[in-house]
Amino acid sequence: MSAALDALAPVAGRRRLTDRAMRALLWAGTLVALVPLVLVLWFLLQKGLGALSVDFFTTDPTGNFLGDPGGVRSAILGTLEIVALASAIGIPIGVGVALYLVEYGGQRWFAQAVRYFVDVMTGVPSIVFGLFVYIVLVVSGIGGSFAGWKGSVALALLMLPVVTRSAEVVLALVPDHLREAALALGAPRWKVILRIVLPTALPGLVTASLLAVARAMGETAPLLFTSAIVMGRSWDLGGRMNSLPVQIYNDVSSPNDQIVARAWGAALTLVALILLITLVARFIARRSRLA
């Protein structure tokens, strides 16, 4: 027996076994993590596809507990309108705060405090935003009681920190030599920011915004307290308004099978919308790598 063969004797069986077992376990853990995704998508398609029809998209919910429940037109329109207004409020403010942090704030205490509280806001449960807007805008009776635009405000609060955090990362990636080149040409700072920094970072900002939109679109709790507690049928942002998540929530525990089927259809629609936006966001992110 040579010394080398001895030295190269395979490691103890127990160690090899442990290695194999742990590798298998980690692989299994990854599979387990993906099982819910597959199951959710499978059941969404299985139960949701059947509910889809022309009527499903073109009629409003009737509000009847028995008989024809109607479709989800008002819910889709409501979701699109509420989220659009929320984006119009939340994205500019969110990007503005990020611009302050990157272009002016630096490491001074005020900027650090803003950064910290933006982080805090990302962790605040969405229901708390809903409660806040409920107290400030609904209870006080500003512009009536429940209204679509109040839901938009709640969603905007939810989007703001998400937008700010990712926008800050994207803006920080804009190389300093671009800013300096423009400043050296005699351009004032605000023009440098609007003409150089923002356009350079635009694709990243769009991605960040779209991901925030996707997140806001699926939120239910803030809307329950602000936009609709009834089967709203209007698409006037000044009045009570229906939305897909709230519609699903209201339909879930119904004893009427048709209404439950509508919930699955609405869920499929909502997930499809969100996935579409997420995919577009990822696509834009991939097309333009700033760094």
Binding site: A7, L8, A9, P10, V11, R15, R16
Partner: peptide
């Protein structure tokens, strides 16, 4: 058939 782990131990 040579165990890479044993190689690095040796």
């Amino acid at each position: 058939g040579i165990d890479v782990v044993a190689v690095r131990r040796a």
